[in-house]
Design a protein around this nucleic acid. Structure first.
Lengths: 198, 198
DNA sequence: TTACGATACGGAGCAGTGTTCCGCTTTGTC
DNA sequence: GACAAAGCGGAACACTGCTCCGTATCGTAA
């Protein structure tokens, strides 16, 4: 029986373990599906990927917007945490930056989908956007600084500017095989590199 | 038999009268439905409103984008032509302006839907947008000038600025009953009026 | 005016998707 | 171990986009 708090307020029931697990599974599954099929991917596809029933999705995320927002937060967090660990694990700071940007581009699919999913709630969107900036700009800056420090790239590029540039490259990626944002992002990153000594 | 042109090029078959009629009917019906149900309205609804079968819509406008673009052009033209005639028919230039803006707001539904319908073709969108500006800014300017001339409104408001302001008021009108753009547009128009002599 | 082929029309039917609902399973607690 | 509550899965329903083809209509040439 759930313990009643002394103040008499409604007891916060502990969530069942399987529910928590499923929620996590769904978040990562949805993120993957968003990348391959866009944020408008059929619910069935996400459910299948996560290995759960559709009812489960609707219980955790009643509307598509709920799901997209949850994935968004999840991704921001994952991206933020990935920065330092990539830096520690990769061969070089620039390699870490490259890998991080790859994650970031995946994440942008969700971010851009968010605008559509939240059409009728622009204030909520603003809040999520500034959360995104506060959390990720410092991480990106750290990666850039490290690469500069290691003399792999030229100094003088701000994290915000780079992220915004990448973000802009990734708009309008709607099933047009002639436009592959990732190629251009790679070019952009190449442009950062310090000119090789001849 | 269709006459063959002297140059031997493929003869331009004269379109059947009912086909032409249906195309016109469809354009006006679609415009009306777009206003009430948005540009994502079911094809069935548009077909029903126009009193034609769905096959007819798909023959004239194979994709939704085709239909939206056609309605868009049709609306720009109608809006442009409505300016002078409203000015001639209305009680006063300001009344004409008000009626014209009402048409314009209807039209904006299509215009904003266009951005979604043409996601993968931003150059095509640019072209349609400048066509829109070239055609309508002068009409709006004429209405404004006339109202200034009649001493109904204060001078100093540019047509482009007014139109853009109205356009911005009309974004995000997605089934949120708390936000009615038309109310705000009316307020804006009220703001133009010359202060009544006390 | 009539007859005939080309053109256009209507809408039934198929396929895919969102959403609900309820019988069954798992979990936590006593 | 037993029981109630919480959670799960997926069949079933509703709605939509889109195709296809039998039928109706139009324009033309005799």
């Amino acid at each position: 029986m759930p313990s009643t708090s002394p103040s008499g307020e409604v007891p916060a029931r502990t969530k069942r373990a399987d529910a928590v697990r499923n929620q996590q599974t769904l978040l990562t599954a949805a993120a993957e599906v968003f990348v391959t099929s866009g944020v408008d991917a059929p619910i069935r596809e996400i459910a299948a990927r996560a290995g759960v029933g559709m009812g489960t999705i609707y219980r955790h995320f009643p509307t598509r917007a709920d799901l997209v927002v949850a994935v968004y937060r999840h991704q921001v967090e994952a991206c933020a945490e990935a920065g330092p660990s990539l830096l520690a694990a990769a061969d070089s700071p620039f390699a870490a930056l490259r890998q991080w940007v790859d994650l970031f581009v995946d994440f942008l699919v969700t971010k851009h989908g968010l605008a559509n999913a939240l059409q009728s709630d622009s204030t909520g969107f603003e809040a999520l956007h500034s959360y995104f900036l506060d959390r990720l700009v410092p991480v990106c800056a750290q990666l850039l600084d490290a690469a500069v420090e290691a003399d792999e790239i030229r100094p003088g590029t701000a994290a915000y500017e780079l992220m915004r540039g990448i973000g802009n490259l990734c708009v309008g990626r709607d099933s047009d095989p002639r436009y592959d944002p990732r190629r251009l992002v790679d070019l952009l990153l190449g442009g950062l590199r310090r000119a090789q000594p001849s």
